[in-house]
């Protein structure tokens, strides 16, 4: 009996892997959900990314010791970092740096610290890790960062981490057995809206063996979306509605609490 079952299982696995055997990339990636809806009671959430590493034969078997880097990038924006300096006895914003097309949300999940996975040049070139993400996007800086620029790079990372929008988790990817993996993408209450790109890299000795991408959406629920949409698209009508509301509530208060 058991003799019969084993080959059957391998056939099943081979069949299951067969679909992806044609993919030379060697990674299968999926998400627990494709959409996160933010309603008025939203207090943060999470999405699980899971998958399997394949070798060249499409077998669910690890191609030796490897690293996994899961990078989740939220909508891109120009982020402006400013520094207060003492001016006329007051602390006022003076210097500033723009970070162009920077992800408003960035989560980097790995199985060990990114610095151990690849050398700094590779990390920067391949946009892996928070440090590299900040360094790559600073506007008007040379190849080698000056001390001033480096301070802004560090500040961007520190501030975004403080707002829980950027996160680097060196133990964010768990292996299940030898080749299956999973990681949890935590989304804070102040998560931005839009498309989040998920990039999974299978790496070995600092080299990318395989790369697979997918994405999910963070959307406002009906009511929130409608309010925000109106505020943006029907500006005058929205403003007039706010005016009507103010007059109505002022009048209501005067009727309810009338004392003369």
């Amino acid at each position: 009996m058991s003799r019969l079952r084993l080959p059957l299982i391998s056939v099943g696995l081979a069949l299951a892997a067969g679909a992806s055997a044609a993919r030379a990339d060697g990674l299968i990636v999926s998400l627990s959900s494709r959409e996160v809806v933010i309603a008025s009671n939203y207090q943060g959430g999470s999405i699980t990314v899971f998958g399997a590493a394949l070798d060249k034969d499409g077998e669910v078997r690890p191609p030796g010791p490897y690293d996994l880097v899961v990078t989740v990038r939220g909508p891109l924006e120009t982020i402006d970092v400013r520094e207060k300096t003492r001016t006329l006895g007051m602390w006022i914003n003076r210097e500033g740096r723009d970070f162009v097309r920077a992800p408003t949300f960035l989560a980097v999940l790995t199985n060990r610290p990114v610095a151990e996975i690849a050398d700094p040049e590779t990390l920067k070139h391949e946009d892996l890790g928070l440090e590299a993400a900040a360094e790559r996007r600073i506007a008007g800086a040379g190849e080698k960062l000056t001390g001033e620029d480096a301070a802004f790079v560090a500040a961007l990372r520190r501030l975004q981490e403080g707002r829980r929008l950027w996160r680097e988790d060196p133990r964010g990817v768990d292996f299940i057995g030898a080749s299956l993996f999973q990681g949890e993408i935590a989304l804070p209450p102040n998560v931005p809206f839009g498309t989040f790109d998920v990039e999974v890299r299978l790496m070995q000795g600092g080299e990318t063996l395989a790369r697979e991408t997918t994405s999910f959406q963070v959307v406002k629920s009906n009511f929130e979306a409608r309010v925000a949409g109106l505020a943006e698209d029907q500006r005058l009508a929205y403003g007039l509605a706010a005016v009507a509301l103010a007059l109505l509530s002022g009048w209501l208060a005067s009727v309810i609490f009338r004392r003369d």
Partner: peptide, 13 residues
């Protein structure tokens, strides 16, 4: 200030 740096986001890229 403890943190002299601050962030502001401008238009979406």
């Amino acid at each position: 200030p403890d943190e002299p740096f601050s962030i502001s986001q401008t238009e979406r890229a």
